[in-house]
Every structure is written in C-alpha cells, then in structure tokens.
Write a protein that binds this DNA or RNA. Structure first.
Lengths: 144, 144
DNA sequence: ACTATTTAGTTGCATCATTCAACTATTGGA
DNA sequence: TCCAATAGTTGAATGATGCAACTAAATAGT
C-alpha cells in the first residue's frame, strides 16, 4: 500500500522527467522552456521573470540572452521607467512555445488515457484543486 | 477557466520548487535527495541507480561520491560479480533520508490541508491513479 | 536643484552538475 | 587462452547558477 506522499513524489518526478526528455529531444533547456511558456502570458520584466522562475536576475539575464540569440524573444526599454527591460515573444518564439506546449499536452494526454474513463472527471477536478492549493502555499514561501 | 494541462504543469512545477527549496535550505542537492530516498528501498548497483535517476553512470558515480564523503552511503563489491558496486545507506544516511522525507511530507500536508475536507478522499485517490498511469507511461519511454 | 540612496539589469568569477569518451577491472564465451 | 562485452571510474569540456561588483536610471531628503 503506498501513501499519498509517495504518490505525489512519484507522479511529480515522473512528470518532470517527461518534461526534461521531451525537451532534451529538441534544443531548449528546461528553464528556457518554462520561460517561453511564461511569456505566452504577455510582456514581463526581468525581475518578475526571475522571481517567477525562482532564479537570480543574473541567471534570468542569461536565459533571456539565449532565447534572444535565437530570435524567440525581444527586449524593449520600459517607457515610464528606462531601467526596466520588458521581454516579449517574437512570432518565432510564439511558435516555439506552442510546439513545446503541444508536446506537453501529448504527454499528459497519454497519462490521462491510462486512467479508467469513469475516474477521469474526478482526477481532472482533483488536479485543479491541487494546483490551486499549491499556488496558495507557494505565495507564502520565502525561505532561502 | 484553466485546462487540465495547465493544472498539471503548474502543480508539478510548484512541487518541484518546494522540493528544491526545502532541500536547498539544508545541505543536499536535489539529485542527492532523490538518491537517498531511492536507497531506502534497499541496495542498488550503480547502473540501476543511474537508469532510475535518468543520468549517466559517470554522473551517478559522482553523486554517490558526494554521499559517501558524508558517510551517508557505502559501496560494497558484488559477491557473485566483482564488477558490480552495491550502494547502500549507512545509519546516518538512513536518518538523513528520513529527515528529507519528513520535510516532503510536511509540504504535501500543507497543500492537502488547503483542499476542502470533503474533496480530499477523491484527490488522494486521484493521485494514486495518476502515479500508476505515469509509471506505466514511463517504462515505455526511451527517447534521447 | 543637488546629492545620496535605492532599484533594474548586466557582467565576471567561481562552483557545481552533467555528458562524452577513454580507461581499468572483471566476466563469459569461442 | 584470448577476445568481446559489461560495470564502474575518471578527465576534459560544457552549461547553468549564485554571488558580488558594476552601470544606468529613478527617487527621496535636504
């Protein structure tokens, strides 16, 4: 009998390894992949991206450098505050983000399809509850 | 309205960041943490650990080196096959693995406690279904 | 208005994890 | 017995990251 703790650990680690392996088959690092997906929500400045991804601003600068070199993102100076650098997706970046998203969808669909159809609605509802609960928890986190 | 895909991505990434931050507050790397927890299941040889963690044997050798230096694991030669190196936890390693596991438990408990009590049984059942489904999917994976 | 302080982002340096490939030791088969 | 395959280790190169110093821009205090 496995506990819920082992289930969460196992599921999340496996999903992470799916992400890594889907991505490594292509040409982006996992961190770049997350960044591209974040930017589909719109324009962000470097600090916001860094704290969202939980890395330093220096690391984020370099992640952006990498995507900029491939013409997937552009930097623009903030209008009201010239210190700010706003990062946004180029058309090519949008396309790449969509490609990555489709791969992720495919992974998740494969997993869900292995769950008996009668259980799927409750599983889907549960995932939404879990996401919401984790988000509430995360905003409080501030260790390290 | 958010789709199930976004829910899985958000939840799994958040859990990963919980893991990283709990661990980084201590003194082990995420990979070492997984390794310690794997070894609580018993003795493994280096190749099995490497393929389980999805890294090369070289990387696994060094992860083991790191834990061995802290007296958390020991290497013993295989009896029937002297090429094999069997890795197992020391008492101190067992203690550390338990400590890490408790931290993980605490994180997960915090998340579950934010879910309405009436939904918890279905969420717990769903997590088990998801884990099982993901495990079936993973064993087929062999890209890269 | 002038200066000092704070904030945003970038860059150099050091560190660590990882992969690849070469190497050693051991095993098993022709 | 010798050769190929296997298990693990090690060196070199790469890449991601944190920290701290730095530049540029905005803001507060006088």
């Amino acid at each position: 009998m496995s506990s819920v703790v082992e289930d969460v650990i196992a599921f999340c680690r496996m999903f992470s390894s799916f992400e890594r392996e889907e991505i490594c088959c292509g040409t982006v690092s996992p961190a770049q992949c997350v960044l591209l997906q974040t930017l589909t929500e719109g324009e962000w400045d470097v600090s916001a991206l860094a704290s969202h991804a939980r890395v330093t601003k220096g690391a984020m600068t370099r992640l952006i450098d990498g995507l900029e070199k491939r013409d997937w993102v552009t930097r623009t100076k903030g209008e009201d505050d010239a210190r700010r650098v706003l990062v946004s997706l180029t058309p090519a970046g949008t396309k790449e983000a969509k490609r990555l998203h489709r791969l992720t969808e495919r992974s998740i669909a494969t997993i869900l399809n292995r769950i008996p159809e009668s259980n799927r609605p409750e599983v889907i509802r549960s995932l939404n509850l879990l996401r919401t609960a984790a988000e509430q928890t995360r905003t409080q986190l501030d260790c390290c």
